[in-house]
Nucleic acid binder design. Structure first.
Lengths: 243, 243
DNA sequence: TCCCTTTTTTGACCTGAGACAAAGCCGCGC
DNA sequence: GCGCGGCTTTGTCTCAGGTCAAAAAAGGGA
């Protein structure tokens, strides 16, 4: 178990690291007491499935620590990752009892879970939760649509640059907006997982990394740690405007 | 103005053709009276922009008749369509005042609009609406993710077959589920618009249609009307299981 | 430390879809 | 009926990225 995912035991909501960003972010104290009593934690080892497409979904929940992917597999083995699930992201869909996607832990993952039926009742009774769910769903929809542009129209090089900039943005969350200078990041995914996310092969991903490295756009400290000496220059390779 | 989009004048909600499927689907009579007083209709000619990315969104609304696309343009002209908006689909995002995508009418379109600020108040006060919004947002998220698999992993042939099956499904909505036999459909898009939706070029779309035609998978009556003699056979070309 | 496995890199070759170009088709206005 | 503009089809050539194969690194136990 890595350093980012300390063991969580009987933690209550008031000390929860995702309290202000998760589905419960806008709940008041009374509502949190109710959720606190309903919740339970589950852990998954890196590589383990959290949910299979087609399975009954008994629970919904939030990622407390670790990273998971939402993905779908074709019969012949082709795989597409539809999203990354990072701490505070929500898993599951109230109102549907069968999963439509596979969810896989790619690092050790801890979830804050609720039984689906009780959570659905809670959503129906608690505007703070249903409103927050809506907000999160619309954010995810925006992210999915941005990714559709990447998958449908960007070149391999633009895909990699866009992906790296997304990691930069996420690891800069909360800090002052960074659009210039250098930045150090750690990739949360293997080459293969990145390929599945961007609709490429792992060889193409590897080649594009090598090319960016030779050009000095990125500096690699090991396989996973990357320094971007000039964030603006990399942004210019994404094919997107910065708005 | 084509036959599917009759002029709408001072219609009230009770006779609205999308009353049972739109964002107002689960509203009770009192709520409908309120919405009825707030709403206004707007029409757009085929080809007209309904909304530009970056613009202030003054209104939100539902498609009453016609078809529109959600799309994004890159600086160099590459375009990706993220979704089709058909009658009962919702345009706009409460809680955000700037559009993130272009929305374009591809046939003549009539919208049932609300001023954004009043609609946001209504959402906050009306669980029926916020719950329905959530449901619709989650459905769109599922659709977007399905399309990500198509964009990232499917071949041109699979993309076309999947697209055709989507049209079959939509034009069969409400009827008995059709998974066998023959079916007649009308394409709502030009070759170019289909290409932008599927991440292809218009030439590739045209070639794939020709190939399917020569193989007898489809029969074309003009450019836009297509008969699919064997729906199951076409389904088998989509690369997806039928679940 | 040394295997053994997994991940990554690199090379050589191939191919599906893009780019460019030209011709065909169709509806519309005059 | 004719000519014009916007679609659509088809041909030819190119190339970005896929496929297959092998070598090189990086862990991670025992």
């Amino acid at each position: 178990m890595d350093l980012q995912t300390p063991l969580i035991k009987d933690r209550n909501c008031s000390s929860c690291p995702i309290r202000h960003r998760a589905v419960c972010a806008t709940c008041d104290d009374d509502e949190i007491v109710t959720l606190d009593a309903m919740k339970y934690y589950r852990s998954f080892d890196a590589g383990q499935p959290i949910m299979w497409a087609g399975d009954r979904m008994a629970f919904v929940g939030s990622v407390v620590s670790g990273t998971a992917t939402i993905e779908r597999l074709m019969e012949d083995g082709r795989k597409q990752t539809m999203g990354l699930l990072l701490p505070s992201d929500f898993i599951g869909r109230p109102g549907r009892d069968t999963a439509t996607y596979d969810v896989t832990a790619i690092t050790d993952v801890t979830l804050c879970c609720f039984r689906r039926d009780s959570f659905e009742k809670m959503v129906a009774q608690t505007p703070h939760i249903s409103q927050r769910m809506l907000e999160m769903a619309l954010d995810e929809l925006d992210a999915a649509r941005d990714w559709m542009l990447l998958l449908g129209r960007k070149t391999a090089r633009e895909k990699i640059a866009t992906f790296l900039m997304m990691i930069v943005r996420r690891s800069t969350e909360g800090e002052a907006v960074l659009t210039t200078g250098s930045k150090q990041i750690t990739l949360p995914l293997t080459r293969e997982a990145m390929a599945d996310y961007m609709g490429l092969t792992l060889e193409t991903v590897s080649r594009q990394f090598s090319k960016l490295r030779k050009e000095g756009m990125i500096v690699m400290d090991g396989k996973r740690d990357i320094t971007i000496p000039d964030v603006e220059a990399l942004q210019a390779e994404t094919g997107s405007d910065l708005s």
